[in-house]
Structures are given as structure tokens and as C-alpha cells.
């Protein structure tokens, strides 16, 4: 299909889709008048039952835990796909050695502060995810971003521990598989998969929610390592084989 045919088909297609959208929107309740009982029921029962104040996180990891497991497997499969696509099977690739450090000290100072601040913020988001807004998903991306700043301001040697696939791959397995293991642990006890079977603790503290905290941490690990694997795959560039005197930092 050539470009002209594609663009000629575009306008009627968008019109038809727009008509279907208008028809669908006409059947929705007006904006602000949410009617469904599911949301109201959850808002009332989750805090007394699970003792977590963040109902969204409790929904993600407890009430709709199966959906989050599916999302984590999407993450895992996509990272697998990126790794397979960006690996060159002819073997002629070399890893770019970022042998230059940044010269500007002010930029490096700001970068170092960003690494420290980013790690703290990321750990706080993951740890307190089920009490205040946050959670394993945004916290994991912040942690991976903080480590990426290390790549930007430092040399290859500083970043090399975080792109070592022999370390990252098992950790990714721990994050994604840990979720499934916690779910299977409930099966062992004769309950349904992913039943929340640990003690619920006191509302509003870190020791609340039972398995929500563990699943939150597993999701945080999975997202962080998935982002790091993604960065490692994308940032390795194709260069010509290096001369012996160019190697080394």
C-alpha cells in the first residue's frame, strides 16, 4: 500500500472511528457522576480490611493482583524482545567505552547530588508505596534514572557494575518471579492464588498490608532492573573494533 493510498484512506477511516467514539461516549454517564459500585465499595472496605491507606496500591497488588502480574510479564517479555532484537548475531560489535570523564566540575557536582537524591527519593517511593502515593512502579523508574545519571557523569568504570547482565538477569527474575512465588505460597496453604495471607499490622505504618508490601518491593525490583536492562541495551553502540591503545579508562 503506497503512501498516497494510505493517506487517502485515512480521512474516511478517522471519520468512521470518530462516529463510533461519539456513539460510545453518548452511552457513558456524565463526567463526574461515576455510578459503578466497585469503586465505592473498595474505598470503604479496603482500609479496614487490609490496613493500607493507599487504596490504589492495595487494588494493584491485592484486589487486582492478577492484572499486575500480567503487567509485569508484559514488562519482562518486552525487555526480552528488546534484548533479542538489539543483539547482533554476527559478533562484530564492541561495547563503547566511555573513556572521557566530564570536565566541568559544577556539572559533576550537580550530577552527584542528583544521584544521591534520586536514590533516596526512589527508595522512599518504593518503601512507602502503599501508605502514600507512589509505589513500586514510579519508584523503580526513579531508581533506574538515578543510576543512569551515574552513567552520564562518570566514566565507564563507574557504570559497569550496573550493566553487567550476569547480575541484572537474576535480579529481574527475582523481581518478576518473586511475585509469582508469593502468590503460589498461598496455594500451598490451601487458599486461592495471591491471597493476602500475612498479618495486616497497624494502619498507616510500614508494617501493614501483609503481602502488599512484599509484592510492592518485588514490583519495584522488577521495574528497576527492567529499566536498567533497557538502558544497557540501548546505550551500547556499534563501533569499529578498538585499537589496543584506545582501550582502557
Amino acid at each position: 500500500m503506497t503512501r498516497r493510498v494510505r493517506i487517502a484512506l485515512l480521512a474516511p477511516a478517522l471519520l468512521g472511528l470518530g462516529t463510533l467514539f461519539a456513539w460510545a461516549i453518548a452511552g457513558l454517564p456524565p463526567f463526574g457522576e461515576y455510578r459503578g459500585p466497585y469503586g465505592f465499595v473498595l474505598n470503604q472496605i479496603v482500609v479496614p480490611l487490609r490496613h493500607t491507606t493507599n487504596v490504589v496500591m492495595a487494588t494493584t497488588f491485592d484486589v487486582r493482583g492478577i492484572d499486575t502480574m500480567g503487567e509485569e510479564f508484559i514488562l519482562y517479555a518486552s525487555v526480552l524482545g528488546v534484548t533479542l532484537l538489539l543483539r547482533d548475531e554476527t559478533g562484530a560489535r564492541q561495547v563503547e567505552r566511555n573513556t572521557r570523564r566530564l570536565r566541568d566540575d559544577t556539572v559533576r557536582l550537580v550530577g552527584v547530588l542528583m544521584v544521591g537524591g534520586g536514590l533516596l527519593v526512589g527508595l522512599w517511593l518504593v518503601a512507602f508505596g502503599y501508605i502514600t502515593p507512589g509505589g513500586g512502579f514510579p519508584g523503580g523508574v526513579v531508581l533506574a534514572g538515578a543510576i543512569l545519571v551515574l552513567y552520564l557523569i562518570g566514566s565507564h568504570r563507574d557504570y559497569r557494575p550496573f550493566r553487567n547482565e550476569h547480575v541484572l538477569d537474576p535480579l529481574e527474575g527475582i523481581g518478576t518471579g518473586g511475585y509469582v512465588v508469593v502468590g503460589l505460597a498461598a496455594l500451598v496453604g490451601g487458599l486461592a492464588f495471591l491471597t493476602n495471607l500475612f498479618g495486616f499490622g497497624q494502619t498507616g505504618t510500614l508494617a501493614s498490608g501483609g503481602s502488599i508490601g512484599i509484592l510492592n518491593a518485588a514490583a519495584g525490583i522488577a521495574v528497576t532492573i527492567a529499566m536498567l536492562l533497557l538502558f544497557a541495551e540501548f546505550l551500547e553502540t556499534y563501533v569499529v573494533p578498538l585499537e589496543p591503545e584506545d582501550v582502557g579508562s
Partner: peptide, 25 residues
């Protein structure tokens, strides 16, 4: 407000980054 749609949205936002990375790959 409804927590279920927020749970769906927040996991979707992070996972869609990796899917877009797959498309870019």
C-alpha cells in the same frame, strides 16, 4: 474517586515505556 482505574493507569504508564522501547528496537 475510583481506585480501580487509577491502578490500571499507573501500571500501564510504566509498562508502555518498555513496549515503546520494543517498537523502537
Amino acid at each position: 474517586v475510583d481506585p480501580v482505574v487509577q491502578a490500571l493507569t499507573l501500571t500501564d504508564v510504566v509498562v508502555s515505556v518498555v513496549v515503546v522501547a520494543l517498537i523502537l528496537a
